[in-house]
Write a protein that binds this DNA or RNA. Structure first.
Lengths: 198, 198, 198, 198
DNA sequence: ACGTAAGCGAGACGGTACGTCGCGTCTTACC
DNA sequence: GGTAAGACGCGACGTACCGTCTCGCTTACGT
């Protein structure tokens, strides 16, 4: 029977309740009772689906990453050719749609475990993209790929955090992407207004 | 009476115990009892110094940031002239010295609150530096300063995380600084091996 | 439609499982789940036959008492004439046949409710016998009939408890009956070895 | 410090609450919460004194039996000489004083465990008395001592149950003792009104 | 003999209580 | 006045059962 309709409904309610409540009061301040009350579900039922609230948060995050992966895959392929910024655009859009969840993940709620899941997933995509581009264009990195990947993912996360913490988008996603593309192509020195390297 | 020697000793013990234990088992998994036992201090004594474990962690982080600020101030002044990477170098050195504490803060332990304190402090320094350089060199930013600041801080945090999570430094701090400087001056496009902007 | 064969089978299985398990672990320690598992029956099925485990135990006991009544009735009639001890003999035989059930009832399992059902039933029979004998032989009791009945039933229960708690009968039922008859006819003073009343 | 006064007070409150509530609603129907609420004590405090409600009941019963033992000891010694009924008199008086507790024990609450403790204690006293009388008066039992003891204790328990279940004593303790003494000296046959053995 | 009403297995669910752990407060006694 | 030791009221934990409720499958009965 694949999955009982009641089960799907219960889990959905619990996930939504978690996201809402973490946003309101923070992950640590929550009790399982709070979540189940908000979800209008018995506490015992919670435990028949999830081991504890960490487990629930981890699964919610995992589902989010799976969804993101699905949306990123074609964008990454397209991007591997040139330097279009399509993946980061797709991610910004996704973040807009799942704004609340992105916020609590990026804030580091849950002792940063979900955030670590997120950055690891991004790092994996980044590494893949690097490898793809290197092979396709037969170029060789000028600085350590590990450092490069960390810097890149950090940049993405930093911008995303800023982006989702505004009630309304502070600027169109396309404009953010353009800026990040410029930054990637010309560097921060240029971006701050200087003209030529030291 | 600046501060009783016993008090200093007790607080030091509690701070060290916290850092050790968070590293070992994670912030949420800790109880006040655990911390006081490790610090060899009575539980009641803990409560005469700190409201709860969040309070302790916040104060430990605040002290770290104050220390970092002291070390960063001259470096930032020097850096404001050119583009030397002195502040990031100083930060890497500080992170080496206080490696355990940096690790738990950067991991997002404590629902990311200490990490937020850290990034906010960095953002403040970054903004200051931007402003200083703009004025001094009368240049005008080519992309939104907010986005730029977020991207920059994110990059720093990302690299720092990677740097402190290695038991032994994966490369000399000076080399990391050189890479980040190259990245700032020429951009990621160049760094991955390409030659000219699209 | 007397009763569906499936129903009879299910109830029998549940009753047997209850008796076995109460004997092994005690009534309070049991869960309905335990009983249904032992009986190889679904838990929901249990609830379609009995309200709860107390109900099951009560019905099992009631059935036992009905059976006992059937066997006691002729014995009591016969006994009403003289002082033969036939009823107690019949009861001992019944207790041998249904030893496990007698044991748990007489132990007071189920907060003593089944035991109370048992003693009440015995008291009813005892009262009936007293009345019958009084009328038939036109004798008048020398001590309060209520006290007499309680003492008698207590004696029976005490001896039964001892009798059924031995794996193998500690002595033939007929011998027990003879002793009790002697005790009834001559009293405990004589039974302990003394010769004449004080 | 032997025993803290607070501790004594807390335990007393819990014991009294247990007895009251078992009387009102039955042992199985009670929760620890109910008991602690009635005793005006925190639930956690209950668990720092007793393992569970069975443990509490067992200790209450054990204390009762210790008290009874103290009161029975001199009576038994006196009784060992003749056939005075002093022990049963003492027991009836004790039962009047601790009526509620006697009621719940004799009802078989707690799956009959406390009742078993009670009957075992009585059996021990009975056996002791038998032995004493046999030796002192150099008489030899005419029926199996085991059966005799069981019958005797059963009789006592049966009469006690009846005695304590009346709100007001149905008759003076001395009269009950007289009856039981008559019963012991002359037997039930005589008691029901007959004159000579068959 | 066979269609159909029933009994039944499986298991999700809202609940209640369990026994444990940790919280933050407090009191008492030391140094 | 700072600390150690530890009792207390409180609240949340994760577990175990309760009794109720679908939902399909199987089985014995009645025409």
């Amino acid at each position: 029977m694949a999955e009982d309709r009641r089960i799907r409904k219960t889990r959905k309610a619990l996930r939504d309740a978690l996201v809402d409540l973490v946003l309101e009061r923070g992950f640590t301040a929550l009790s399982v009772e709070d979540v189940t009350q908000r979800a209008d579900v018995a506490r015992a039922t919670f435990y028949s689906h999830f081991r504890d609230k960490e487990d629930l948060f981890a699964r919610v995050t995992a589902d989010l990453l799976a969804e993101l992966d699905v949306r990123l895959r074609p964008a990454v392929r397209e991007n591997a050719v040139g330097f279009t910024g399509r993946p980061i655009l797709e991610m910004l859009r996704h973040a807009r749609e799942e704004r609340d969840l992105y916020r609590i993940v990026l804030r580091g709620e849950g002792d940063g475990k979900p955030l670590r899941m997120f950055t690891d997933a991004c790092a994996r995509v980044a590494a893949e993209e690097f490898r793809g581009r290197s092979e396709r264009n037969s170029v060789v990195p000028r600085i350590d790929p590990e450092v490069l990947a960390r810097a890149w993912v950090g940049e993405q996360v930093g911008v995303l955090q800023w982006w989702v913490e505004h009630e309304t988008p502070p600027m169109p996603a396309e404009e953010v992407v353009r800026m990040l593309l410029d930054l990637a192509l010309r560097g921060r020195y240029w971006a701050t207004g200087f003209d030529a390297p030291v």
